[in-house]
Design a protein around this nucleic acid. Structure first.
Length: 294
DNA sequence: CGGTTACCCTGGATGC
DNA sequence: TGCATCCAGGGTAACC
């Protein structure tokens, strides 16, 4: 669930506590979340190191450690999150950062254990690992770069926006909100978008993500919370996600929850009046297994 | 190689 | 009430 705004909110919450602090120890309660390093190598490398900087790269949380200690990457994925106060579900704690001179540790909880934690001995190795699987950050990508990347795929615009190799940070919720803002149907083939439409998407990416960051992200069910345990406020004012059957805030038509080709298995919310379906998926042609798609 | 699907996980919601 | 099934959704491996 954590997408760019939620990860940015985590980073902003961790920064005042972590930056400049010395790590006393890292306790790995579930080794399954480690990727590419052992619990021993992580604990050994990290003990005594100072956290110089906390930053975000796409949906990664990055802790840059003092010279020689490398850096730690945390991918919260679906249900990962940090707590600065004792978490409500101690059984979901997977990792604990103990800080010198601070009474409370920082807890990393992850209900579904989909999150990943990696230690890189060398910052440049982490940079290469990120670049192998990610394009430019969604808040940094230039219009021309975005246009070029969308022009060279045969996919629909929504799966293209969610592809971290195209641009980093957008997931299922914000892809829908961005395409609503730009008034583009999620099934529209990315390469057929006109320059004005790409410009609208480029503007919508920044507008939606910054609005969500200001609201401290999106919360639902038992999922994401800020590091202070608070719920993000974005879903109180959003346009599509979770609003099936409710009136579009722009035109009043009922919001539909559907599935689109290329993203079967994930819900897509759309206003079919504000986001006109492309020819290829309107009418009777766009069906999979007897289910109408739009 | 680009695109698509299966699977990883758990718990809350839904269905019978 | 109890049990089975579905669903969420980021990411990667495997597949076509």
């Amino acid at each position: 669930m954590p997408e760019l705004p939620e990860v940015e909110t985590m980073v902003r919450g961790l920064r005042p506590v972590l930056e400049g602090s010395r790590l006393a120890a890292v306790r790995v309660l579930d080794a399954r979340l480690l990727s590419g390093c052992s619990a021993d190598s992580l604990a050994a490398a990290v003990a005594g190191a100072v956290v110089e900087q906390v930053c975000r790269r796409g949906k990664w949380v990055v802790l840059i450690l003092s010279a020689g200690a490398g850096l730690i990457v945390i991918q919260p994925r679906m249900t990962g999150g940090f707590w600065l106060t004792p978490p409500p579900r101690p059984d979901h704690v997977r990792l604990i950062f103990e800080l010198r001179g601070r009474r409370h540790p920082i807890w990393f909880c992850d209900t579904r254990r989909l999150g990943r934690v990696t230690w890189f001995p060398d910052p440049s190795a982490a940079e290469r690992a990120f670049a192998r699987s990610h394009g430019p950050d969604a808040l940094q990508i230039g219009l021309d770069d975005l246009a070029a990347r969308l022009a060279r795929t045969t996919r629909a615009i929504k799966p293209a926006l969610m592809d971290q190799k195209v641009l980093a940070g957008i997931g299922n919720i914000y892809a829908d909100e961005i395409l609503f803002e730009a008034q583009i149907h999620p099934s529209r083939p990315a390469a057929t978008l006109r320059p004005t439409q790409i410009a609208a998407i480029h503007r919508a990416i920044s507008a939606v993500l910054w609005r969500a960051i200001a609201a401290e992200g999106s919360s639902f069910d038992a999922g994401y919370r800020t590091v202070l345990g608070l719920e993000g406020g974005f879903l109180a004012s959003n346009n599509l996600y979770g609003r099936e059957g409710q009136p579009c805030r722009r035109c009043g038509l009922a919001i539909r929850k559907t599935r689109i080709p290329g993203l079967i298995g994930r819900p897509t919310y759309v206003c079919t009046r504000c986001q006109r379906p492309p020819r290829s998926v309107s009418g009777r042609s766009g069906r999979i297994g007897g289910v109408a798609l739009d």
